[in-house]
Amino acid sequence: MAKFWYLFFVPLFALLSVVEFYPIAESVYLSLVGTGGGLQPSNYVAMVNDSAFWNSVNISLLYSMTSTFIAVGLGLGLAFLLTENLRGRGVLEAFYVVPLAVAPIVVGTLWSPPEMWDDIQTFLHFILGQPYFNELSPAFFFPVMAYSEAWEWGPLIMLVALSVISSTPRAVYESAELYGASGLRKFRRVTLPIVMRSPVMRFVIVLRFMDAMRAFEIPQTWASWVSSTTAVGSPVDTLSLFLYKLMFIPTYNFPIGLISAVAVSLFLVSLAAAALMLGLVRTIGGR
């Protein structure tokens, strides 16, 4: 075909060089510069020996797994409601997608202690006579953090599920109805397997997990509540928050080698996720 189309890759690669290739190369280089100059893996050794790093690896993994799991559950639940021919389905759907539009930093604020929890605390205490619960214990705030993340992204799972459902031939569902399956049963036995096996849904779940692995805003708001904005190693330190603190808390002296080493390691791990996603895109492909 006409070769001139290749010209349009020139600005693309120019842009990518500035905002991706050069910074990534620079990060790799910075991560390999040792304290005494010269290239050596000392930053990676420091990273592996850093307990705060492993703390945030654990927290990020736990956070991504819980929030992705809840988001999938929430999204499928909402999708089920919207496939039940309720009146006002369009209005319901509009309400359900609203969280997708809210900035994550606002989501963190929405679910922080004085926002709704004081209403709930007051209700439980004065109406039901319960003692106050401690909003700053990890057993409370960690699930809340994971739920806030899921609250925002569940609707995406819902939208994707609905698009998979609408692109499946109706005959599939009709034959299920013919066998007497209805409502929840039909959804669980027929719709759910179709939705969860579709490459698009798997792609979105992998993408969501990967994005949750670098969650920053919601843990950042909670860091302020649990008074852990001045040191790394706190129970809200996801990997992004860990790196952010290393960058901006003055006492750490901007350890750029260590930060780059962690960022490069994360990049290598995320390439594995990218490979998984690309495999799914090939399956979706042909369009």
Binding site: E20, M213, R214, S260, V262, A263
Partner: peptide, 9 residues
């Protein structure tokens, strides 16, 4: 898929 930090720093 790249974490923003590898670029931001």
């Amino acid at each position: 898929a790249a974490s923003p930090f590898i670029v931001i720093v």
